[in-house]
Amino acid sequence: MTAQALQPKDYKSVVPPTWCAGCGDYGVLNSLYKAFSELNIDYNNTVIVSGIGCSSRFPFFVKTYGIHTAHGRALPVAMGVKLANPELRVVATGGDGDGFSIGGGHVPHICRKNVDITYIIMDNRIYGLTKGQVSPTSDMGMVSSTTPYGSPDRPVNPLAFCLVYGATFVAQGYSGNPKEIAALIKQGMEHKGFSYINLVSPCPTFNKTNTFQAYKDLVEPLPDDHDRTNLPRAVELALNPGGKIRTGVYFESDTPSYQERLDEIKSKASKFTAAGFAGIVDLYRP
């Protein structure tokens, strides 16, 4: 890497985004370029991992290494990358369906393990790649192609979900405010351990309910005096009193990362046998 700081455009890959005009994900992508540039991130030393969905095309649009995995499996794959080479910076990206429906079973475990990766969800409350079905964050009653009489399901709450499972950094942003998103991504990537960033990112094509227009009056920053070390208060705000979309950092704690715990295990284990492979073989001598 040259000493010269990289500009946001330097992180752009040659592949142009495949998203519809007006998609909220453009704002997220530009914010990510900006955050990377401000952190002067080495794109050769960074891996972006995604699942399947519109927002999961993300890795193709950034000049880093990347893995575009199977639907719902970004987190376990991202975790494997990070644990195999802790020197790499690892970011997982995806949508609400990828993260909280098909892949929802992985979220509690990456939270409680506190693996040092940043997970960015672009929440559009709809399945866009399959052209408009309700997602796990869609409101009850929402009409879509698979819910012509209105959705019978209540939505999940990704922020509360991650908070109660022990994520050590939880934030929310809105793609109408890319500056703030860049700041959140920067903080998330500087955080030690698992950082979860929920980004409200409207789908102008298939979700005619949760639009930029509709969000305009709902989005507001977290209260100025919010104490980001106060978990019960963070959960309370995440439960969304008054139906507002509050942006900013809900919670942050200084907790040993999974890597630090694994390093402890390795140092404990190495005290038991000194002789490497031969020492292990000796355990099985009769």
Binding site: V47, V49, I67, T69, R73, L75, P76, V77, A78, M79, G80, V81, K82, L83, A84, N85, L88, G105, H106, P108, H109, L262, I265, K266, K268, A269, S270, F272, T273, G276, F277, G279, I280
Partner: peptide
């Protein structure tokens, strides 16, 4: 761990293979 390697008990078999894919990609 005695030989410096990493072992994970994953949340299910899908995750364990996902971990393995990521680790192998990383080298």
């Amino acid at each position: 761990p005695k030989l410096g390697g990493t072992l994970v008990q994953a949340e299910d078999e899908i995750a364990s293979l996902g971990n393995v894919i990521g680790a192998s990609y990383a080298g």
